[in-house]
Computed example of a mutant assay.
Amino acid sequence: MFKIIKLTLLLFLAITVRTQAQHIEIIPQSNYTFGGKIHGRYGELKIQGSESYGISLDIVNKKTSFQIEYFYQPTTGNYRDYFNPDLNNQRSDLRISWYHVGVRQRFGTNEKVVPFAGASLGLTNFNLDSSPSRYNETALSFGLQTGTNIYLSDILGLRFHGRLNFPVQFNGFGFYAGTGGSGASASASAYFIQADLGAGLIFRLAN
């Protein structure tokens, strides 16, 4: 699955850069991603807020930019069982990785200060290390974002942004923490929302 996604992203990048880009922006970023809860049939997994890190590649064409974005959140998950209190407060390492492509609309006429808003679609991978067992799940996800680019020169700038991220699943989803044999499982829906705030350093390259 990830090989197909990577090949699709590379093809998307090659075609867009060649045919549309006025310039390209590479944006490493640091964020704070707020926590959330996955509510399941038997319990819930509470995701702790933590720092996250990522990189965005924006292909800019006049008032529109196409983006390829990855960011990673190392955090913990606390499991609470609805029916068995002995299984509560199980704490496990949780790593969340987001792989998205999207479109941003750029606003304003000031070339130095450029607000933007956009949407993205991709995959989110959840890796829960509840030793001695581990759980790895990949879900379809989409996101909404807004922010502002502030250009300090022709090649350097700053980005400030906020995002809402929505993992979505269609074929069932489950988390199992500890050795109790119970866990959280969710039906097909958007089962939780994560928000983050962050800043990045823009490196702008001419096409």
Rank of each mutant, 00 (worst) to 15 (best):
G108E: 05
G180E: 06
S52I: 07
A206Q: 12
L152G: 10
F166G: 02
S182E: 12
S56K: 13
N31E: 09
G178V: 07
P167R: 00
R95W: 00
I26P: 03
N136Q: 11
F175Q: 05
F12N: 08
T146Y: 13
S97D: 11
I193T: 15
G178M: 04
G172V: 05
H23N: 11
G178R: 03
R159Q: 15
D154S: 10
L140A: 04
S153E: 07
F2H: 09
K62C: 11
I24M: 04
P167W: 01
Q48Y: 12
S52W: 00
L9H: 11
I47H: 01
G181H: 09
T64R: 01
A199Q: 10
F142T: 10
S187P: 05
T64C: 06
T75L: 06
R104T: 11
K6S: 13
G157Y: 00
S50N: 15
M1G: 07
S153L: 03
T8E: 04
I24K: 07
D196A: 09
H100P: 01
I150Q: 12
D86V: 15
D154P: 05
I15C: 13
Y79R: 10
T146S: 13
I202N: 14
G102P: 07
Q20R: 09
G36L: 00
T109A: 10
R159P: 00
E69K: 04
F166H: 07
I59T: 13
Y99T: 11
R18M: 13
L197W: 01
F203K: 02
I193Q: 11
A177R: 04
I55A: 11
S97V: 01
F173Y: 03
N127R: 08
K62I: 05
W98G: 03
N149P: 08
N78G: 06
Y99N: 02
N110D: 09
K63S: 09
H100C: 02
S141L: 02
E25I: 03
E137Q: 01
S65W: 00
A21T: 08
